[in-house]
């Protein structure tokens, strides 16, 4: 057993567990995830599950979905620094997929009021969920990553329908961006912030 502290709570984890697994096991649900899914290998590509890890007096940010627990470390899942990092990640993801409801909702949750990055709708955040779903759960391996750097894309080989694709639709099901668009009233590239406004409790409501 490994002893560690998560958000001030002393917890015990099995050897080999990740910080994310441990946190969820103890009901700490302040770590948002996007590219992590139970039953699939971890990719650590979205970085949204970033947490602050304090060990030997030093604090650093790391992706909790792939960080194995260590004896004596202290983890903060929702500190100011972590929230700041997550805000930037969400903003960057939104800049490449402004119509994703998942991302818009996350932006509302984290109180992001404006997008500081140039919005360029690419329709994909390259989280790799569909690729792993296809390969690991559906045993097909019909789609994959191609090219490199800014040209990286998810596609089928030679851009023709693959023989191994059974059109099961699992890739569409798991995709966090190719879903119904957020219905909030907004201009293209705007943040809807509908949920943000809705959940905010104003202690001094005005009467007009």
């Amino acid at each position: 057993m490994v002893n560690l502290i998560i958000d001030g709570q002393h917890v015990q984890a099995e050897e080999g567990w990740t910080i994310l697994e441990t946190a969820r096991y103890y009901g700490i649900d302040t770590i948002p995830t996007l590219c992590y899914r139970e039953g699939l290998t971890t990719d650590s590509s979205c970085r949204l599950c970033v947490v602050e890890i304090i060990s030997r007096g030093r604090s650093r940010l790391s992706a909790s979905c792939s960080y194995p627990v260590q004896e004596g470390i202290e983890v903060r899942t929702n500190s100011r620094r972590v929230r700041q990092a997550r805000k930037i990640i969400i903003e960057l993801l939104l800049a490449s997929c402004p119509n994703s409801k998942t991302l818009q909702c996350l932006a509302s949750q984290y109180g992001i009021k404006e997008l500081r990055f140039k919005v360029e709708d690419r329709g994909c955040i390259l989280c790799g969920l569909c690729v792993r779903m296809c390969k690991e759960q559906m045993q097909a391996g019909a789609i994959g990553f191609f090219n490199r750097g800014v040209d990286r894309r998810v596609a089928m080989p030679f851009h023709v329908r693959s023989d191994v694709c059974r059109e099961c639709g699992a890739c569409l099901y798991i995709c966090p961006v190719c879903e119904l668009q957020c219905r909030g009233p907004r201009e293209p590239g705007d943040l809807c912030n509908g949920c943000f406004e809705a959940i905010r409790i104003d202690p001094f409501p005005s009467r007009d």
Partner: peptide, 26 residues
Amino acid sequence: PEQALRNVAAGMGISLVDIYGVATFF
């Protein structure tokens, strides 16, 4: 050529996506 890559995939027992991924990466 496309056919050559398909033959390599079949011969090596590696899925075509992986080979296509490597061929487009470099």
